[in-house]
């Protein structure tokens, strides 16, 4: 087991809001360091929505105590979106003084005094599936309700290393270098496409036609070229055994801010196009646009031929033999009626 330095373990609050709990469960799969090492050597878990046994005022009392006693010292990790509809009542994280404590209220109270705020998973980072259309709870990501920097660790779910590594970095070295979406560059610094083991197949044009084929997944909608994550190198999960493309299925881009509404359907190269009342695939839209263009041009050309405009153009701009030949072709097509006009 890797030994950490003797720095005092910072208190950590792991708050679950509108979430499937997948990110916490994924973290529990971490092997190096493992969960035991995490809680004994690295951090001091004061509150964890999934693993804690306390409830009611006992549980929420811990939140209050940490906020008051450890101000500026604790790390707040939030897993899930924050519903804002009806003042946040679509997610209650506990009861306090006989009243429901909403996720919105808890995140705002705890977020202000935290040393670092970390959004665990794509829902907390960018909205993800819990803020997907029609979003009846009007859920938003953590950053939308806090007026301070939030470190985003997206993934659906997160790779255990991404969260563990971020926590280790925060405790040992401070804030990691972040990209434009506040994701740690150590885990989200390259696109999956750039470090994919099947990149050579892409360059050579050897593509999978269906899931299960052992080639480049680009043609069946792989989002690797537009997704930042180190899945090809790190692999999943705690044992680092495999990852989607290695399992012959395309990357669905779960670490991207637009996931899932903005990159679905997962087996299409481009997201769907939303027109008023209609949702249409990009390829179908392109085919329809091409057909409409061809149709419009054909109709106009037929009109130009029938009204003698094409013949006029040829007669006006050509002289001699070429003109006569072209005109004879058009006259044969149009008949005497329009040929006579010129």
């Amino acid at each position: 087991m890797k030994q950490f330095s003797k720095k005092s373990r910072p208190p950590v609050i792991w708050l679950g809001t509108n979430t499937c709990a997948g990110d916490m469960l994924s973290l529990l799969n971490s092997l190096e360091p493992g969960y035991q090492s995490l809680i004994t050597d690295l951090i001091d878990f004061r509150f964890n929505y999934l693993l804690g046994s306390a409830e009611g005022d006992t549980a929420t009392g811990v939140l209050k105590a940490v906020t008051e006693e450890q101000r500026g010292k604790y790390i707040l990790v939030i897993e899930g979106t924050i519903p804002t509809r009806t003042n946040g009542l679509y997610c209650v994280v506990g009861n306090r003084d006989g009243k429901p404590l909403t996720a919105l209220q808890a995140v705002r109270e705890l977020g202000g005094g935290a040393r670092h705020v970390v959004a665990a998973g794509t829902c907390a980072s960018f909205g993800g599936p819990y803020a997907a259309a029609p979003n009846p709870s009007e859920s938003v990501p953590v950053q939308a309700v806090l007026d301070r920097k939030v470190i985003n660790v997206p993934g659906c779910p997160i790779n255990p290393d991404w969260m563990m590594g971020t926590l280790v970095h925060l405790v040992q070295y401070g804030e990691p270098e972040l990209d434009g979406f506040n994701r740690p560059k150590i885990f989200y610094g390259d696109t999956i496409h750039d470090i994919c083991q099947r990149r050579a197949y892409f360059e050579d044009g050897i593509f999978a036609e269906k899931p299960g084929d052992p080639w480049c997944m680009y043609k069946i909608g792989c989002k690797g070229p537009v997704t930042y994550a180190d899945c090809p190198n790190r692999q999943w999960s705690g044992e680092h055994l495999s990852w989607p493309v290695k399992a012959n299925t395309p990357c669905i881009g779960c670490t991207s801010p637009e996931f899932p509404d903005g990159d679905a359907p997962f087996f299409e190269h481009l997201p769907d196009i939303n027109l008023p009342g209609i949702k249409i695939s990009a390829n179908r839209f392109a085919r329809l646009a091409g057909a409409a263009t061809a149709f419009g041009i054909s109709i106009h050309l037929i009109g130009s031929i029938l009204t003698g405009r094409v013949a006029d153009t040829i007669k006006k701009d050509f002289s001699g033999g070429i003109s006569r030949k072209l005109l004879s072709i058009i006259k044969n097509t149009d008949g005497k009626r329009y040929g006579g006009k010129n």
Binding site: G180, K223, V226, E258, D263, P271, I273, A282
Partner: peptide
């Protein structure tokens, strides 16, 4: 990355490029 952020990510950006 700021341009991608402006339109909501690389996927919408790619769609815009295509359209």
């Amino acid at each position: 990355q700021k341009t991608a952020k402006l339109v909501g990510g690389l996927n919408p950006l790619r769609k815009l490029h295509f359209l």
